[in-house]
Write a protein that binds this DNA or RNA. Structure first.
Lengths: 206, 206
DNA sequence: CTAGGATACGAACCGACGGTTCGGATAGCA
DNA sequence: TGCTATCCGAACCGTCGGTTCGTATCCTAG
């Protein structure tokens, strides 16, 4: 029994919801966007949103997934150093840079996801993949450290809310965060680091 | 004009609310405890809770503050190595241990606080104090690293939700987290570390 | 082209949330 | 004892994520 073709209005509405949601999530503070708003912005009833995506979490995942797929492909099948085959140190550097970039570009959406529930950020399939891969690359660089713990710690430092906070409140620039992140993961700045060396940097007198 | 003495029932109710809230928060998942529940458990109306503490955030802070005060005093005025006067490495080790212990003991309450809002965890006065002190001790140990960034990263690794997750999902023990945390902060395990050395530790086959 | 059954639609509804309003009870003070 | 500032709880508010259900729409078989 062949499944009936999907109704045209259903296809249209789902696309409209996705577009409206992506737009609203990317624009505003993620936690303040209600499903009601998204539905209204898409010209659709709230029930339609829940029918298509199950719940708020499903909607967010549907927007985030295609964006994450590109990075995942580059990591598993792309050319080195991000893809497989590069020497461990270069592989780790490229991976950290790619993750930082990805989280930063999608930070509002990821924050919405983090905010879903206590462990939502860590226990979803995508994050588990990133963490496992991070652990592998860390272990390849230095098998003496506890790569599993370190992977979780570094991944935590990559949380969207953390990056957002570091950027807006203490005003840390992205290169500085990048340097700090690499230092955290490897004990040394990345090879091409351009941030000035500093001794006993003092907190700015604010 | 001398202020009238506070009404006895007001004093009684405030104490009852604090006790009930502390109990509920310590017991259950922090994010699921509603003000309604607290009020009912204290034998008081919901309005009474808001009258005494302003809002949910105020209530949580009122419970957390006295617990934090003890640690803060030990850090600023207590005997070394937690208090001032110890050599930098010992001061940092003691501080990390004290923070880890404090967060772990009060993790449910702190999670409730973290959950209040996006930057609530970092921007409140107490956290700013812990982060600044952490930065100072980190800088004293190694002035070459970016102590300000590192302080934020280590403090993030000390978030209650992170510790809770590490403990319950990947099943990391507290000594292991402690070792990882010290390694993160200093590049080496704490001097009295007892966790077995491991090379290329593999993720358990789950 | 049309009839009919599947399917998606939105309006109305649900319980619970944090927070507010307000008239009435009550405790402190003279 | 009586006045009054204070504190009380019941009822209410708008909004949230999520569900129910009668109806309108769309695909498809004849």
């Amino acid at each position: 029994m062949p499944t009936r073709q999907e109704r045209a209005d259903a296809v249209r509405n789902r696309a409209a919801i996705l577009a409206a949601a992506a737009d609203l999530f990317d624009r505003a503070d993620a936690t303040t966007v209600s499903v009601q708003e998204i539905a209204r912005s898409a010209g659709v009833s709230k029930a339609a949103v829940f029918r298509h995506f199950g719940d708020r979490s499903g909607l967010i995942q549907h927007i985030l997934e295609p964006r994450a797929a590109a990075l995942r492909d580059a990591v598993t099948d792309g050319p080195p150093p991000l893809g497989p085959g590069a020497p461990p140190a270069a592989a780790l550097t490229a991976y950290l840079d790619a993750l930082l970039d990805f989280v930063y570009r999608n930070r509002v959406l990821i924050r919405a996801f983090e905010y879903l529930g206590p462990d939502a950020y860590y226990t979803n399939a995508a994050s588990r993949f990133w963490i496992a891969e991070l652990g592998r690359r860390l272990a390849a660089v230095d098998p003496h450290r506890d790569a599993d713990y370190l992977a979780h710690a570094v991944f935590t430092a990559l949380r969207a809310d953390v990056l957002d906070y570091l950027h807006t409140v203490p005003g840390m620039t992205r290169p500085r965060i990048r340097t700090g992140l690499h230092t955290l993961a490897t004990g040394a700045p990345p090879p091409d680091d351009r941030t000035p060396r500093r001794r006993a940097r003092r907190t700015s007198a604010d």
